[in-house]
Amino acid sequence: MAPVLEVRALRKVFGDLTAVDGISFTVNEGEIYGFLGPNGAGKTTSISMICGLLDPTEGEVLVQGIGIRENPREVKRRLGVVPQEVAVYEELSARQNLDFWGGIFGLRGGILKKRVAELLEQVGLEDRADEPVKNFSGGMKRRLNLAMGLVHDPQLILLDEPTVGIDPQARHKILDIVKEVVAQGRTVLYTTHYLEEAEDLCDRLAVIDHGRILAEGTVDGLKAQLGEGSLLTVQGQFTAASLTAAAARVEGLQPVEIADGRGMLMVGNGGPGVSHSLEGLFSAGLTFDDINIKEPNLEDLFLKLTGRELRD
């Protein structure tokens, strides 16, 4: 698959703050590429540079081989941007909003009318199409926000946390629309700090924090970085050193993240198992207030990579 988006050593510095620190990645045609990271990780700044809203301090952005610095208009024609905030005209109806944004990209007459009608149906707003947007619920506004980024049928769609602040039902609707759009041959760059979304939606994703990509790959590939097995999380009155020493004496038990009073350990498949591992820890004299056993997920990976939780 040819890359639709290539980002090379992209960097953005605001005074003393390096918001994005030399990230590079490619997004292939028909792919949903996720940017997973907490608030302030640099996701929105990256998106802003990719869509030409911010000038990079360093680095390069190519969309279908065209550099945004060299030919911004050609690049922007290929982009559909859905910003994190609901950037719609509340006084106008959904149809008027879509008419305007379609007109911005040169759609006119019957073509525009047809495209607007298609989108209204796709996002489930055809019944309320002529009502002022200010009367809409948060979820409906989010759907319109998404539709406005799709009106000119762009090749690459940049979705910046499109489900923030809405209920689960509305979120599922938006995720379904994104999947439909990709099924129609479009490519998506999707930023989120919701693990479930990233796991459910993205073909590949990058874990980002402090402006750097910490890990990149498929969801399964990233989870595999933690190892195959079960994840054992313990909390209690112990030191990091005592837990590390105790874990080292248990076969098949790998420390993932250990600190005073809490620890995360991987119990490898094919080994003696969770019960045996716990027995080994108890026999070392450790006591625990809380024990949790689960399948590893991206949150655990993030914790391993950064030493803090994704929602910190």
């Binding site: 869509c51 809203l53 922007k76 905030e85 609901v86 950037a87 719609v88 509340e90 911005i104």
Partner: peptide, 11 residues
Amino acid sequence: SGTLARLATTT
């Protein structure tokens, strides 16, 4: 509201 910034992401 971000509509001005959104305009800037267009052509």
